[in-house]
Design a binder for these strands. Sequence first.
DNA 1: GCATGTGAATAGATTCACAGCG
DNA 2: CGCTGTGAATCTATTCACATGC
Lengths: 235, 235
Amino acid sequence: MPDRLDGPRIPEATVARLPLYYRALNETAERDIETVSSEQLADLAGVNAAKVRKDLSYLGSYGTRGVGYAVEFLLAVISRELGLTQDWPVVIVGIGNLGQALANYGGFGARGFQVSALVDADPAKHGEKVGGLVVDALESLADLVAMRGIRIGVIATPAAAAQDVTDQLVDAGISSILNFAPAIVSVPEGVSLRKVDLATELQILSYYQAERKSRRRVGKCTPDVQLQATEAKTS
Amino acid sequence: MPDRLDGPRIPEATVARLPLYYRALNETAERDIETVSSEQLADLAGVNAAKVRKDLSYLGSYGTRGVGYAVEFLLAVISRELGLTQDWPVVIVGIGNLGQALANYGGFGARGFQVSALVDADPAKHGEKVGGLVVDALESLADLVAMRGIRIGVIATPAAAAQDVTDQLVDAGISSILNFAPAIVSVPEGVSLRKVDLATELQILSYYQAERKSRRRVGKCTPDVQLQATEAKTS
DNA sequence: GCATGTGAATAGATTCACAGCG
DNA sequence: CGCTGTGAATCTATTCACATGC
């Protein structure tokens, strides 16, 4: 069977939710539950039922009317769609606090991902063992990527190094990058980039915190707001 | 002057970009540049110029036609809007790999945030020093929050503990939460919640990586896709 | 009968394009 | 003239509501 149906292109917002359903379904499967309704799945994933149905409908008609979705089957469909039927080796660049934590983080290699190389620009770190792997020189990046079939790069360097590291990852043939550095990096077409930024997340929280305070002060009522945000780019 | 203009409510998507502009403007200010055009700012922030102008227009008309925006002034406007004119003490719950990394992460306390307490459920960790702070018992959470005026909670526990910790944070009076645990947690109205999930980010990358491979195989061309995603909730 | 799947309706975000102003 | 600020147009996502089919 092919890795993936060549179906209609799935909306970005839906793709971003598939991992939530995937996790929710795994938890459900572990409880030996065989079918779920869109409403149950919605509760577990923290969204609403209509969204679940619409999202799943992009994958095909895999539910049974009057019954719901077969958990194991839906899991198989989603993991194929997400490309989780194979293992993705990952390289972490920048073995500081965060890089080390990521290297040690068990849940990282959760399903389908494994940290396969660690590199750092600082020679003092080379040879050090972190999470069972030896830290290599940044210069050996291209070799490591080629030899270990690495497809995903994680940037955990200081902001100043981020663009340079990105370029090196791209040159080494990586086309999926997760950037933890607080810097905007640009990538050529055909490379996917997602970013995770602590300071940004805190600042967004700060906005709403301050808003609540200020609205309270002027006697207004904070309405229900459902925020959503994430950031990535595939050029 | 008031902490914040009581202007029109700013769209969520715009709020999520204000931190990007804030960072870009800080970098610009450090280079002693006094004005920026929407186009320059757009390049630095990785968005397009029309978006910058529209976003900034929600804050008021602070640009000068034919010239651009005064960097320092705009910085002041945005930091007021984001509530960064004051310091937000933060508590980190769960001092495992990730929690430790966050506690040590310098850029965390970047601007306006400071880690003020660390708590963990494991008694073995109590008294340990991480990033200059002593790890306290989870039970003392409410006291710490009250005594140190903590407003933001960061969850870095295993998934299984996340909802329980969330409830405790809320009970302690916290109304802004950043969740790193790979679990959906629910919060009562009036509490802001954002989440950062490694596995989810990797799985999204995996989707597009797999898509490129599969499209290539069937001879189609991957179009320019500009993804965007983040996730939060203020109920 | 009951829950899916989906067109149609609505809401929200992005982009365009240009009037307005320094 | 150049760049902002903004209505209008477009595109994307969410939600509704119900026909469909097990």
